[in-house]
């Protein structure tokens, strides 16, 4: 219950940053917050209350936490990092032409 509520609040915060903020870099930060919210939610709903999935001598494998979401989230983090790096490069390029980071320079996200 509380997992879903926190996820929705974080996701909407990130989405609010993309829609409303007047600075392209803050929009990229909002995108990262959205991705982080999904990763947090994924881990918290597949939690079994067990130990970390590494055998350390005296582990029992029957009540280990799920290793599959952790692998998927590692991939997701790397994808998010490359996307943000590339978006920031594009913002640097745009800054050379217009000297500002206002999304109204690119006509806003919803107009053409």
């Amino acid at each position: 219950m509380i997992n879903n509520l926190v996820f929705v609040i974080l996701f909407l915060l990130g989405f609010y940053a993309i829609l409303v903020k007047k600075n392209l870099i803050k929009m990229v930060i909002g995108l990262n917050i959205m991705e982080g919210a999904i990763f947090y939610w994924f881990i918290s709903i597949t939690d079994r209350g067990g130990m970390i999935p590494i055998i350390n001598g005296t582990q029992v494998t029957s009540q280990m936490n799920d290793p599959v979401p952790q692998a998927l989230i590692l991939t997701g983090i790397v994808i998010g990092a490359s996307t943000s790096a590339f978006l920031l490069t594009l913002i640097i390029e745009l800054n050379k032409f217009t000297n500002s980071t206002n999304p109204d320079q690119i006509g806003g996200m919803i107009e053409d």
């Binding site: 993309i18 995108l31 991705e35 994808i79 996307t83 978006l87 745009l94 690119i106 996200m109």
Partner: peptide, 16 residues
């Protein structure tokens, strides 16, 4: 550059 920024934003949100 403007086109690429819009494309990336929309595409990433779709991927999410």
């Amino acid at each position: 550059t403007e086109a690429a920024i819009k494309y990336m934003f929309y595409g990433t949100i779709g991927g999410l």
